[in-house]
Design a binder for these strands. Structure first.
Lengths: 209, 209
DNA sequence: TATCTTAGTGGAACGTGCTCCGCTTTATAT
DNA sequence: ATATAAAGCGGAGCACGTTCCACTAAGATA
């Protein structure tokens, strides 16, 4: 049995970190497959034919299987990749936009990710070992990136101070995972974000009913 | 989508009970498929090719799919069938053998069933709606049949009175489901059954260490 | 630069699930 | 008994997953 490399490292990282020689074309192909898979999954869902992915990546199916022996490996790799990208973007937004705008912009990005995850939810809960590392990755990479954005907004005084970052993001996630499509989820989470914004001074609204 | 008929009724029962006309050949084929599936599952596991089952039953794959649109339907039907047969046998044994012998003989039969179920365990816990009715069936048909045997043995005074029927059968089941093969499970449950037998009068063994 | 070694490639080929539809068999009406 | 309707049958055919291995070309060696 091929060892499922799980969600801890990409195959390339794996190979590099274990000191093995990695051919340049192999790296290229790996990346092409990953990108193709991301697209195809988005278009046709995670049950899309392997051949479609291989074709889009411009490689043979054999190559695809070489890198990702099981479909779950590929799904995990794509998802991990997207989580990382989303986390990176949090930092980028934090460095380029004012606190509240960075947060609200990033939340839209997060919704995209979370809605996608919906389709993966069944797979995620299948107990497949390939998915084992994903929750940890979320906690260790995605959530901290989010918290930095949130806390910066909090420190700037532009958001309410009676909502915790964790409960906020959990609420957003549950909106996304409740069966809504992207449009609807964006709208609902948008409400949440608006609600988070601290009212303008002197125009506080009456939340005491 | 064809309606999964679940584990509540066999398709034939379904058709008869809904007053629909059922052709004789359809009934024959249905039974043949069920028997073939039982055999093939036993030989090759529940992932055996559909074609193998159809061939053994002497029907085309189309016929098989007509009766059991999803593999889970077939598995559920086979398993339900076996549970019922096992329950029926409890009553038959109860009517033809002395209390303790009836119980101990039936326990061997039960082990066969339970060990088989091991292979199905993953499928059972997959959440497939086809399996929904099975646990209920076990409680409503198999367990009562067992309890009748057990209580008859208890009433006849041939077994200890400090063990409940439920804990006893649960213990037996857990021995079967712990990864043992049939041989081993039979031996272990045999121990359990021997332990259940009330010691001969005047030759009580010292269980107080 | 020319040669060698072998990691890596790609796609033919095979096994399987599942569908589709022309044909067969059964049951009913006459 | 015969004709008619349709339930049911079976297996060819297609899509897909997965394996296998002859071939290609990247990188090491001299």
């Amino acid at each position: 049995m091929a060892d499922a490399q799980g969600a801890g490292k990409t195959p390339v990282e794996e190979q590099i970190s274990t000191g093995k020689r990695v051919r340049a074309d192999a790296q290229r192909n790996l990346l092409a497959v990953l990108r193709a898979a991301k697209d195809v999954f988005a278009i046709s869902g995670v049950d899309a034919p392997v051949r479609d992915i291989a074709e889009r990546a411009g490689v043979g199916v054999g190559t695809l299987y070489r890198h990702y022996p099981h479909r779950a490996d590929l799904i995990a790799a794509v998802f991990r990749q997207e989580m990382d990208a989303c986390a990176d973007e949090a930092d980028a937004l934090g460095a380029s936009l004012p606190p509240f705008e960075a947060l609200s912009t990033w939340m839209r990005r997060f919704v995209d990710l979370a809605v996608t995850k919906q389709g993966l939810a069944k797979a995620l809960h299948s107990g497949d070992p390939a998915f084992e590392g994903l929750p940890a990755r979320r906690e260790e990479r995605l959530m901290p990136a989010f918290r930095r954005l949130f806390e910066r907004a909090a420190a700037s005084g532009t958001i309410r101070d009676d909502i915790g970052s964790d409960e906020f993001v959990r609420a957003a996630a549950s909106l996304c995972l409740s069966g809504a499509d992207t449009e609807q989820a964006q709208r609902l989470v948008g409400l949440l974000v608006d609600g988070l914004r601290r009212p303008e001074d002197g125009r506080e609204h009456d939340d005491g009913r």
